[in-house]
């Protein structure tokens, strides 16, 4: 799935045939797919908890059998990309009579759809959970840059966990791979590029959060420096886990200066993506396409030995330009 559209179909077939002949390898597929399924469950939960979609809780009034059928339909539709991939795998498995792998696939999807169904039911039964009162520093107002960070941690925990798990795993992978051959810093830069592009889901949340809940901020007399400093701080906070892991697992032959460059680069991708949407609001729907193109272009630039600090610096400069001249032109228009 990771290499969908990037590696050749023959390579896909070779890899999954190997996995199906050794069910323990198949478990890696299941682990990755489980992340995807949890992401879809988190999406449904997010929708049901959104103030604008409270009416969806009336769904509970529908008879149980009909409700279960609807949940199964929703769940199957949401997992369709991985289900289709599994069907493709099964086609080869049937030809090779790999019945253990087929049974594994059937059990995995039955289990995941069953789990989704149970969790969906739980979501509509626990509609208005009481908002937790902040227990620490109650006499100190929450600083503005932390409004979004709190939103991520309280309302998008699963999305944050999956994103961080994935990006840290990629970084860890390239750091461990680095000493095994004659690699240079470009390998680490590719890992950083992938790890940052995975955060585009958070960019979508950032943009919609600001336009839905913090519209009043646009009526505040915040100078460019204050606006941009708040955004910059948010970006730096978001990437604390990646930077910590990079410090810890940085290969011995790589200078610690690279960690600074890495921070400029990964946060630059994020802040530029957010500001691209400010500049052109309709880009919100195209962020995943930007991710793909960003990966291809970024890969080329890295391979041509462009320093990640220069790339990051250019992305930060673009974001600053948009923030200074286009910020107030941004308007979220629902289609």
């Amino acid at each position: 799935m990771l290499g969908f559209g990037i590696i050749r179909s023959d390579d896909h077939v070779a890899v999954f045939q190997y996995a199906m002949s050794s069910p323990s390898i198949l478990l890696y597929y299941f682990a990755l797919w489980s992340l995807y399924v949890f992401k879809t469950i988190a999406f449904v939960r997010h929708q049901f908890h959104h103030p604008a979609y409270r009416f969806l809780h009336h769904f509970r009034l529908i008879p149980l059998t009909q409700r279960i059928l609807s949940w199964v339909t929703i769940s199957v539709s949401l997992v369709m990309p991985i289900l289709a991939y599994a069907f493709w795998m099964s086609f080869y498995a049937v030809r090779s009579q790999q019945w253990v792998a087929i049974s594994g696939l059937i059990l995995f999807f039955a289990g995941m759809i069953g789990l989704s169904l149970l969790l969906f039911e739980r979501i509509i039964r626990q509609q208005d959970t009481e908002v937790k009162v902040r227990t620490f520093a109650r006499d100190w107002p929450l600083p503005y840059p932390l409004f979004f960070i709190q939103f991520l941690l309280r309302k998008n925990t699963v999305l944050v966990l999956i994103t961080k798990l994935f990006s840290v795993a990629v970084l860890l992978g390239v750091c461990l791979l680095y000493p095994t051959d004659d690699y240079d810093e470009r390998l680490l830069s590719i890992g950083l590029l992938l790890g940052s592009l995975i955060h585009l889901g958070l960019t979508t949340e950032h943009y919609t959060f600001e336009h839905e809940y913090l519209l009043f901020v646009r009526n505040l007399p915040l100078s460019f420096l204050r606006r941009f400093a708040a955004h910059a701080l948010q970006m730096l906070l978001i990437f604390i886990p990646e930077i910590t892991f990079l410090f810890r697992y940085l290969p011995d032959t790589v200078s610690y200066l690279f960690v600074g460059k890495a921070l400029v680069f990964i946060s630059g991708i994020q802040i530029a993506a957010l500001h691209r949407v400010y500049q052109h609001d309709k880009s919100l729907e195209k962020l995943s396409a930007y991710g793909l193109w960003g990966f291809i272009i970024g890969l080329l630039l890295i391979m041509f030995r462009i320093d990640p600090a220069i790339l990051g610096g250019l992305l930060w400069a673009y974001a600053a330009w948009v923030n200074a001249y286009k910020y107030y032109k941004s308007e979220f228009q629902f289609d």
Binding site: V131, R134, P141, L142, F147, Q150, F151, K155, F209, Y213
Partner: peptide, 11 residues
Amino acid sequence: PLYPEYLSAFD
């Protein structure tokens, strides 16, 4: 008005 539910009027 629509504000993030975890913030307080104080914030």
